[in-house]
Nucleic acid binder design. Structure first.
Lengths: 138, 138
DNA sequence: ATTCCTGCAAATCATTTGCATTACC
DNA sequence: GGTAATGCAAATGATTTGCAGGAAT
């Protein structure tokens, strides 16, 4: 059950939090914005305010349940950290997102941080391109 | 002279545009936000509106004179494309920005885009960390 | 002259916050 | 029951846009 994850994070198990986590989990293959989550809540007939969605998403980020990404265009999108370590390719035409993992790049990043005397805390890598296969996703 | 750059880009040579380009060029070692440019204009006694700064910066971006970056925190920052190809390290404590160039990473990125059938248009790589040298820049 | 540009204020967009009310433990 | 969480509306912060007046070619 999801509640354990919430408790573990020191968050009270409330209906909005459970519902929001459910929605993110049932859409684990995409990257949802606060607005997306809110719309999905409405679609499911839940009475949860947009402000709460923003608050909860931020709490989940702090609790290391979600990771926030910016990609292009003002809005943040989120994905489950439990999905593991990966970076993204984004199609600039369709918005389609693909995931990849490249140890060589990661090793280089660690090396570069070290060269510059930085304690690496995180990095962000997004590849933008035009997908040659018309996946027309979403 | 700067005017040639503007003309080449199909932009009329106007005082705001020349002044803004001057400011960016004279601060080529940092990454300025629209607000930063605006403040610098005021400091230099120029009467140029913030809206114009935003408009001009966007035009320069479209004309491939500037590149826009997001880094952390809502605001966009800009830098001259003529500075060449590089990526960034950002100190999460001080905001200090360092630049690096790594052909191996770039080659990998090209390879990955190709594997996923993407025509690479661009990518964004930012390394976040805590600088061990207190550069206390800016 | 004509078309493009600028300044200003008002409009947007995404996100945040104050506060009274309500829901968990 | 007490504290933490939520909903709503209003506040923010960054950026954009409409429009009337001003410049550049």
């Amino acid at each position: 059950m999801d509640s354990s994850e919430l408790k573990k994070a020191g968050l009270k198990v409330t209906l909005p939090r459970v519902k929001i986590l459910e929605i993110i989990e049932s859409n684990a293959d995409w990257h949802m914005s606060a607005e997306d989550v809110y719309k999905e809540l409405l679609a499911r007939g839940e009475e949860i305010g947009l402000a709460t969605v923003y608050r909860v998403l931020t709490q989940f980020e702090t609790a290391d349940i979600l990771k926030r990404h910016q990609f292009e265009g003002g809005k943040s999108v989120f994905e489950l950290i439990s999905k593991g370590d990966h970076d993204h390719l984004v199609c600039v035409k369709t918005g389609q997102v693909e995931e990849f993992h490249d140890p060589i790049i990661q090793e280089r990043i660690a090396m570069i941080a070290d060269q510059f005397d930085f304690d690496l805390t995180d990095y962000s890598l997004v590849i933008y391109g035009i997908s040659r296969k018309a996946t027309g996703k979403r």
